[in-house]
Design a protein around this nucleic acid. Structure first.
Length: 322
DNA sequence: AGCCAGGCATCAG
DNA sequence: CTGATGCATGGC
């Protein structure tokens, strides 16, 4: 077992670990919360690592306390774990300059609302295949349900790992292991519904080399996006999720039902002739490399407000109850 | 009971 | 090109 602390020297700006982990980002499933800390694990060429992470201190002056456990009785590399945490929580993103940027916007309807949310950070996947599957799983689904499905996916098809502390964990399945499945059995285990065939097809493309996720890093935003849109089940929103949470392209702004609703209210008041594509383009053109952060903050803002609720409701038959 | 969820493929016009 | 519809599942 190893332990260390990440302090001001490695965290640029505020951090709210709980807010970040529980914000429903599709980089991966939500980290498990046990006792007073979050738990996650990841795989490496030299073995899997499990870590427990706790926030110490306030959002403004927070640091992160980390414990790491290697596979069986091997101690993990502290440097590898440190880099993993910095990478997935994007601790090098300077959030203060994001908040300052918001204040410089001339009469932007969102800047004051969003700057009140502190310490919420974008996350970034290290396992691109996992991020793609999670993004596919999230479409027309709730955060609760797609997270549950991904945990079941790990339980039935992921490699089982025994860690130093004696606990057993499950890693995210490989493309090979999902490529073998048939939609029926995958759905019977994980309740992913009609998305089962999307998972399997994507897994086969990755296994066969028809879809090289690492290669997409080398392409520009539009190039990578166009390649992604050729995958069955990947539309504009799923592609943008992968570009943002997988490839870390922060100009991506996935437009889901929440962003659609909140953007109509805040930016396009009374203009009914706005499409989701229009909203995504607007966010990217307006906020540039900050579009991803604005989107994440808008998503959180909309979701945590009872006032922001579905507007278009199918008309129901009037009914008389005896 | 029905609407909804970090949408998309498909098809009609 | 735009708009409508079916889709699996389960929470609320």
């Amino acid at each position: 077992m190893i332990e260390f602390k990440l302090d001001k020297n490695s965290i640029r700006g505020p951090v709210d670990l709980r807010l970040t982990i529980q914000s429903g980002q599709t980089a991966g499933p939500e980290w498990e919360y046990v006792a007073d800390h979050f738990v996650d694990s990841f795989d490496r060429a030299d073995g899997a690592i499990k870590f427990e992470i706790t926030q110490v201190g306030s959002t403004q002056e927070g640091s992160l306390y980390v414990k790491g456990f290697g596979e069986s009785c091997h101690e993990p590399s502290q440097e590898a774990l440190r880099q993993h945490i910095i990478n997935v929580l994007r601790l090098e993103d300077d959030l203060e300059s994001f908040y300052q940027y918001l204040q410089t916007l001339p009469r932007d309807p969102t800047s004051n609302l969003l700057a009140q949310i502190k310490g919420l950070r974008l996350m970034r996947a290290e396992n691109l295949f996992e991020c793609l599957i999670c993004s596919l799983a999230s479409q027309n689904n709730s955060v609760l349900l797609w997270n549950r499905s991904i945990r079941l996916l790990e339980k039935f098809y992921g490699r089982s790992v025994r860690f130093e502390d004696g606990t057993i964990g499950r890693l995210f399945p490989t493309p090979e292991s999902l490529a073998k499945l048939k939609p029926r059995e995958l759905n019977s285990k994980t309740s992913v519904g009609y998305r089962a065939k999307y998972f399997i097809k994507a897994a086969r493309m990755v296994r066969n080399g028809d879809l090289d996720l690492e290669h997409l890093r080398k392409l520009d935003f539009q190039g990578a996006r166009e390649s992604l849109l050729e995958v069955l089940g990947v539309g504009p929103k799923v592609a943008d999720c992968f570009l943002l949470y997988g490839l870390g392209k922060t100009e991506a702004a996935p437009v889901d039902v929440w962003i659609d609703r909140i953007a109509r209210i805040l930016y396009f008041k009374r203009k009914r002739k706005v499409t989701r594509k229009g909203i995504g383009d607007f966010l990217r053109e307006t906020y540039g490399a900050y579009a991803g952060y604005v989107q994440l903050y808008l998503f959180h803002y909309a979701r945590t407000r009872r006032i922001i609720r579905p507007s278009k409701r199918k008309s129901r038959d009037p009914r008389v109850y005896a």
